[in-house]
Write a protein that binds this DNA or RNA. Sequence first.
RNA 1: GGGCGGUUAGCUCAAUUGGUAGAGCACGGGAUUGACGUUCUCGGGGUUAGAGGUUCAAGUCCUCUACCGCCCACCA
Length: 721
Amino acid sequence: MIPDKFLKPYNPKETEERIYKLWEESGFFNPDNLPSSLQSPASSFSMVMPPTNANGNLHAGHGLVMAIEDIIIRYKRMRGYRALWLPGLDHAGFETQIVYEKQLEKEGRSRFEIEPKKLYEEILDFTLTNSANIRSQVRKMGASCDWSREKFTLDPDIVKIVYQTFKKLGDDGLVYRGNRIVSWCPKHQTSFSDLEIEDVEKVEPFYYFKYGPFIIGTSRPETKFGDKYVVMHPDDERYAKYKDGQKINLEWINGEITATVVKDEAVDMKFGSGVMTITPFHDATDFDIALRHNLDKEQIIDERGRLLPIAGEFAAMPISKARPLIVEKLKKKGLLERVDESYAHTVRTCYKCGTIIEPQIRNQWFIQMKPLAEKALQSIRAGEITYIPEHYRKITVHWLEDIRDWNISRQIVWGIPIPAKICERCGAGFIDVEETVRTCKKCGGEVSPDKDTFDTWFSSAQWPFATLGFPHGKDFKEFYPTDVMETAGEIIFFWVARMIMLGLYVTGKVPFRMVYLHGLVLDATGNKMSKSRGNVINPLDLTDKFGTDAFRIGLVVGNTPGTSLSLSEDKIRSYKHFANKLWNIARFIIENTEGEKMEEYFSVSSPKDAALREELQATLSDIANDMDASRFYLAAPKLYHYAWHTLADTIVEESKKVFKTGTDEERISRKQFLFRALDALLKALHPFVPFVTEEIWQLWRRPTEKEGMLMIQEWPSRNGK
RNA sequence: GGGCGGUUAGCUCAAUUGGUAGAGCACGGGAUUGACGUUCUCGGGGUUAGAGGUUCAAGUCCUCUACCGCCCACCA
């Protein structure tokens, strides 16, 4: 008898949780539990999941990650590989600290008033409590990842590996601590790497001031208090009579000062008057000039973005308030030459809060990137990593060729503490993983632990080998290098390129053989989703409405790697219909073949059915090629089309006639074919729509052993590798 | 300033090494006691942004132009 369930439409809500539990309890998410009989190539396949923010919620981008990666891993599993998909949680340093700070703000507290250790404990507690949430959301997507191997970026074994890497970098002379210009956010009071800075076009007034015999231009009058060097190009004939090192007395903002002439080629003769004054403490170009000429560097603006006592009457004022007052004063003194009101330039801002970045000289840890980038370039150029889509290779190479040193210290508590001692007297820093440094090696002064933490990306960059237990772990030996890294194209520099560099540096091997980059998930009209726009689509709402299968295949069909995707409810709805179509195809075939001994003679006798069988096999082998080449966006619609328009619309319709008017032989032949077609289709579609296919399979085959689950059946085409 | 993409049906996008330009959605005509709450069938719609070139053959390769987008960049 056909199960009663088939008399009603497919009901994802009633099905998904139950089926997921069935899979999870089978243990087959863990490659160690896969029956060896199924492993024909007996080889391993591994993929590490981009660690999800432990404290966050699943967004549409995650939905895409889970869909694509689960398709990959289920396909490989069904192909007989020891398939490992390793899930992980990210402490997401700065991101999480910001979320927590907002919560503190609501409570009327501030992170600057809480003792760091206590704050860390609070955030840890907050994060661990919330992590149950994201775990259950990943499960809802049907992700068949090995939960027994789940890692958290703050796990002691991960931290230990991160420390070893830091020490190795130090031993190799690739880490340095120094007073350098860093990008500083006055609101968050931490430094950032270059990647966290967002350039914004701005039109602001540009002021020309009389500076002794010169005219200097600036958009930032508030930094000019300490400017005592006036710089011009050595070849600029207009200023030939001024000599390098020459002193000039002149009237400036707060009285007379002595300025020193500096000749440097960094000055653009064509810009403004060809003369500028410099503020080495708050500008990277100026800092470089100061280094070259060994000039004084004086701080003008403090960590919170307020003017220091050097500003005299303006001290303690925030920049926005001080700027017009300073201009006013200079004007009164007759030093304002003119103002260009529409000066367009780019301003560097904090990617998180939009606050204007105030470059500051800070004593920070840096990684010298050139040597690491060289190795990565070599491997990438040698083709050791396949890029999908291919043009990301060029983008990566271009970035690596012009890489900057990486500021890896952050002045926040939520993260992995930097294992180092800092001298209280001279500020020197010493890497101290073994905790053996007692006094300053430079001046003998007292040392104390570094208060800074690592940039989250420094530890994330080590994720593939750290999670697999480098260097001696069993998993590391079996599964590294991993086969695929699937992630968002957006984080190609933040994460992918850095994983390649550190993977090669630490293990000597690339961390993954292939990188698959997906694009942004946009709203239905092609706009970026954002809270402020109010157009955020919650994947869980869609799975709730249309089923997880519909959501997954809807995200994948036609979604070419690397290009962004518009997510519309209509599209997901249409795949809900597809799940139901499968349901009814199954119903028809099961009804019409039950009671017959289908598995005993798997051949068809009529020429018509032989042709159908060939067509099916050709289709599957074509799709197998797409699967092997990671063209899921093509494989999915081909399966959809075959199921709906070939099998259902054509073959099933015609079968009704065969069953009514055909001979016994024709009938049995057609039944053989339909049985076989449904069998193949469920298997082939399983990676895309795992829930409905497994549910049909269970109702149809009623396996008594867990080895009979669809999830671990062999994928139905002998083609492909 | 440098780099990378894109421009194909009303909309969203495909087209794997060059080989008859296709799908979904939308729209229009017809059918339907059905395996289908979510059905089928037929149909209209295209100078593949423009110009030139290579080729037996170009959406695909080359050159130029025009828009659109993204990323990188320390010109005060």
